[in-house]
Write a protein that binds this DNA or RNA. Structure first.
Lengths: 217, 217, 217, 217
DNA sequence: GATGAATGAGGCTTCATTCAT
DNA sequence: CATGAATGAAGCCTCATTCAT
């Protein structure tokens, strides 16, 4: 029988332990936990993101984590959805330059988001459940991006010799590639360098300059 | 112990090999093990790449693996070097189109290499020892790529309104981004689609059309 | 990365810990473990038979147990087979009385066997893998018992108004029932009482006295 | 706390029930919970009978279970008493054949009772508190059975060469043995086979035929 | 030179239990 | 009355690593 030894009397129990039903709002606590997970994954890698460590960072016990998430897998899935929710806010900025600006800001301020995203992408490769989420949300992301680019093309601010669809694909991949290298070569991604990279992207997708008319004599 | 802990680069190791003497089973066995590691990482993810599984795939015992590699970390380091050795062969093709062609081939034939590379990149994020290797070899890779692009610029086959250095950075990132999504959305990367993507890249870095518009006129 | 902190140097390690390849015979050690499992199950019940406790009783670590048995389930399956192997030795005694005598002895000396058997039977109810083993071996057991009884019937030492098959079924069930109550009411199963019970069984399956004398006429 | 920890026997509880007042939801809810526990134990085994699952099946929260039962142990004890209350109804049928008939019916209709009984018997082996209950109630059960058999002996319908006490013991064990195998080999216990088994039992305890031929003359 | 038995830490999960609300 | 958030121990298992043979 797996009845553990009697729980100690109240006198015996650790003095400060808080038991019983606490106040908190369920959703709020869940959000806190998600933040803790992202933070741990970003800073210690997915392999280091044990439930214990997550609980520790969130300031609760392991049991609490498994109380809010059925599974580790479910927890990670929730994290991925949460991350995309954050990234989707980028899409609200129709202007392509403004969006890159925002992106730039996030790289600095919410670096954890990118780090975690990258780690999870690697994990998702072998976890079909997670892969499905990535497919769904990435597809949506690229679709919006493409439609923005198409608008830019019709306005003449984006080159139109490459379809908006392909451009979206290329830009998305480029962003991912940087996100990927960012943690490995942080020195390469100081604010100034990022600015330069973004400018180059703008140039890359700009319509052929009129200047191009006389480049070579 | 008289065996080297770190896997020397190919260049270094070549030079130390005793001339007249057969290279011995040691190096061969090590190479077999490296292949096994890559295969396991590619197919089961880094998390699934236990020494046991590696040994199993290589058809030997766990002891053998720890005998040939001082450490798991040392083993992984050796794998990374090995992977870059493979990728470096891409750089032998000076022509940009030809290189993309090769890249395309590798994506299909040696898909394991990409998968493993991606997995290890994620791991390296939190393993300074491994991160250093990536920095060193990536930098070298981009330098060669940039010099190739510079040559293309001077020959007028590559647009020169963006510095070769930045172009190399962008292309490298784009390639990484695709490598990253390839395992997640394999359907998006059928041979035909890849062809289209590569054509678009060529267009992206080509000199502005006007030049292209009236070569035939 | 889940490389644990470096293992401590030999100097630091616990003084008496034995590492490296030991001498023992694989099968012998496995048998020892099986005995430990039976002992634990018998004395603490199946619920109390944690791998930890088994290892403790066997004088090794938990890891060792999982080294010898792929699973807890596999371990339990091995135990069941082992138990039936022991019980099968009972079948070597063709004479019905002699067999009961042996059975009596086992009840006293190897009481652990019965206790464990009972516990495992309860568990098997909800573990198909284990249930299959019980079915197979119980069927075999009853078949041999029935053939022994049939021989007794043809020799006139066993009543023949009930088929040997049914008698085997009844006796087997009766034995199981006692095995079941034995741990609950040990006081009811002292040597003397068991003797009485067995005598009663002999009487139960003996040919009707008068009828045997002048069968039908 | 003013609620009773142990579940009183039916007889006892009946007497304490306040006369004029409605029995209240409390007892009803408790009974519902008991049914849920039995159902869970029968279908998932004792190991699977967590408080959570019980609550789930009863359609209430975990807290409710611990509210109605001081302990898991107390809950289980209540279940055992409840089970014996059910079985005791068998004893109301003095006629031996009629009782077996009833027994047969229960095997089919209330199979859960047997399954749970068996599971709990295994658990009780190592839980003195529970074992005591089994001893008390089993003893009572056998006493009534023996007195019934003694009556049969005096009426000449039961063989009298074996004491009623021993016969009760044997029959009880046989029944337990079948109960034990029933979940393991359900195929062996179809309605027809059970009928045959019961007939054989009747034959087993019947007086030697010759006597039966000329009953009392 | 190679093996593989054994270790022990740590990961995920389940569970009975407590108690503020 | 009744709930359900939170606890913390324990269970099973996997793994990198060590080392006698």
């Amino acid at each position: 029988m797996d009845m553990p030894a009697r729980a100690p009397n109240r006198n015996e129990s650790r003095s400060i332990v808080r038991r019983g039903r606490p106040v908190g709002d369920r959703e709020a606590k869940r959000a806190d936990l998600l933040k803790a997970v992202i933070s741990v994954i970003a800073q210690e890698g997915y392999a280091g993101a044990s439930l214990r460590k997550v609980a520790q960072r969130a300031g609760c016990t392991t049991g609490a984590v498994t109380y809010y998430f059925e599974n580790k897998e479910a927890m990670v899935a929730a994290v991925i959805e949460h991350l995309f929710d954050q990234f989707d806010t980028l899409l609200d900025f129709a202007d392509i330059k403004e969006r890159f600006r925002r992106w730039l800001d996030m790289t600095g301020a919410d670096a954890d988001l990118w780090m975690a995203q990258f780690q999870l992408l690697a994990v998702a490769r072998h976890e079909p459940t997670l892969a499905v989420i990535f497919q769904r949300r990435y597809t949506r992301y690229r679709r919006v991006l493409a439609s923005n680019l198409a608008k830019g093309q019709s306005e003449g601010t984006i080159r139109d010799d490459i379809s908006a669809d392909l451009l979206a694909d290329q830009l998305s991949a480029m962003g991912d590639g940087w996100m990927m290298m960012l943690p490995i070569e942080p020195d390469r991604f100081g604010p100034r360098r990022i600015q330069v990279l973004l400018d180059a992207v703008i140039a890359l997708i700009a319509p052929p300059r009129r200047a191009a008319r006389r480049p070579r004599g």
